[in-house]
Amino acid sequence: MTLLLMAAGSGTRYGKLKQFDDLGPKGEFLMEFGIYDALKNGFDHVVVITKKDQVEFVEEHLRERLPANIKLDVLAQEITDIPDGATFDIDRQKPWGTAHAVWTARKVIDGPFAVINADDFYGQSAYKNAADFIRAHRDDNTYALVGYTLRDTLSEHGSVSRGVCQVEGDNLLSVDERLKLEPDGDKVKDLDSGNTYSGEEHVSMNFWICKPSIFSKIESEFRTFLADKELGMKSELYIPKTIQEMLQAGEIKVKVVPSEGDWFGVTYSSDREKAVADLQEKTDAGKYDSPLWK
C-alpha cells in the first residue's frame, strides 16, 4: 500500500516551510509521524511530492530514517509538468494545486493509495481505518474520504480552508470547498459566503483513498483548465473537485471512513506551540518512540 504526502506548500501564513519544521520531541517533522503510523498499519511505499529544490534534502532525510524494506519516491511538483501536447503562456509562479500534486505521482503508483497533507497530524486510528478500507476494496473502483468533524479542525488563530461534505449514511454525496472558515460563537461561519455551519459537519482534511483511475481524470481536467487562460492565471486544481466530478459522473463510489482519532495542523505560526506540546504528550504516553526512528 502506498502513502502519498503532499509537501510542496509555501507556508505563506505559517511564515516558513512548515512541513519541514522540527515539531517532534527529537526534531522530527510532523509528516514523519504520519509515515510512522502508516508503516505500522502495513503501508510499504512512501511517495513525497515537494518543491524541486527540496527533493534531495527530503530524500536524504527519509532514507536515513525509514526501514530498508520501505520503497521511497520523492518527486518535484513543477509548474512545467503538464499533459503532453498541452501548452500555457501565462506568467504563473504558484503550483497548480493539490490535484496536480497527486498527478505528479502518476508514474510511480500503480495500485490503491492514500493521500495526506504533510503538515497535518491525522491520528493513529485514521491510518488503521484507511489500511482496512484499502484491503477490503483493493479490486474495485471505490474511493474513500477519511472524515473529520468541522468543529475539531478549526484554528484559534485565523480562518482555515475546509471541504464541507454532504453525507448520506457512509456515502459521500458532495464536497463544498470553503476557504475562510472561523468559529462564530457555537457555530462556524464562512467569511467568503456568509454561510453558517453547526460545526458537526464532516469535512475533508485531504486524507483520501484513491485508485490509479484518478490520474487520467486529473489529466483530462488539467487540459480543460489550461485551455482557459483566466483559470490558469489564478485558480488551482483541487482533489475534492476532481473526486466529486468522478462521483457525479457515476465513475466511482466514495465512502466516508471515520477517522476515530484526533487531528491537528499548523496553519499559522501560533499553532506551533500546541503542535509541539501535543506530540510531546503523545510520545510521553508511549504512543510514539523517541527518537521516532530507531
Rank of each mutant, 00 (worst) to 15 (best):
C210W: 02
V102C: 08
N117G: 10
V188I: 12
S270V: 13
K180C: 09
D140T: 00
S10W: 09
R151T: 04
D53Y: 10
E245R: 09
W96E: 12
E200L: 14
T50M: 13
D184K: 05
V74I: 04
L72H: 06
R65G: 00
S155I: 00
Q280R: 14
F113G: 11
S269W: 04
Y197F: 15
D289C: 08
T224H: 08
G11P: 11
Y268R: 07
A131G: 05
G147N: 04
Q19D: 14
D192S: 13
T2A: 09
E28F: 00
G85H: 10
P25H: 04
L191G: 06
D289F: 05
C165T: 07
R63K: 15
Q280S: 08
M6H: 10
K180W: 14
W208A: 00
K282R: 15
K26Q: 09
D262Y: 11
E245A: 07
K211V: 00
M6G: 01
I116D: 01
Y127C: 09
T196Y: 10
L237G: 02
D176Q: 06
L145R: 02
K18W: 02
K274S: 11
E32L: 10
I35F: 01
E281Q: 15
F33R: 01
G15Q: 07
P112I: 00
L145E: 05
I134R: 10
E168N: 11
F113D: 03
P25V: 06
T142Q: 07
G123W: 01
A8T: 04
K189P: 07
R63S: 06
D192P: 07
D132V: 08
F207N: 03
P258V: 04
E200T: 02
S213C: 13
I243G: 03
H137S: 06
F20W: 14
Q124S: 15
L231F: 12
I82A: 03
R13A: 12
P83M: 06
K255A: 05
V276H: 01
V167R: 08
A7P: 06
L30R: 04
V257I: 15
A8G: 04
R223K: 15
L172S: 08
G27P: 08
F133I: 05
L150S: 02
P240L: 05
K234G: 12
M6Y: 04
D21F: 12
G9L: 01
P291C: 13
T224M: 12
K241V: 06
F57S: 10
A126C: 03
S10I: 13
M31A: 04
G158W: 11
F133D: 09
Q166C: 05
T142L: 00
S193C: 09
D37P: 05
G34I: 03
D110L: 01
D84E: 15
G111A: 15
C165G: 11
Y36L: 00
P112D: 10
I243K: 02
D53F: 12
Q19C: 08
F33G: 03
M233V: 14
L247N: 09
A8D: 12
D44T: 10
V102A: 07
E273I: 02
L150E: 07
I35K: 00
V47G: 02
D186Y: 10
V115K: 11
M205H: 07
L154E: 00
D228W: 02
D73E: 13
D73F: 04
K107Q: 14
W96N: 15
D21G: 06
T142R: 14
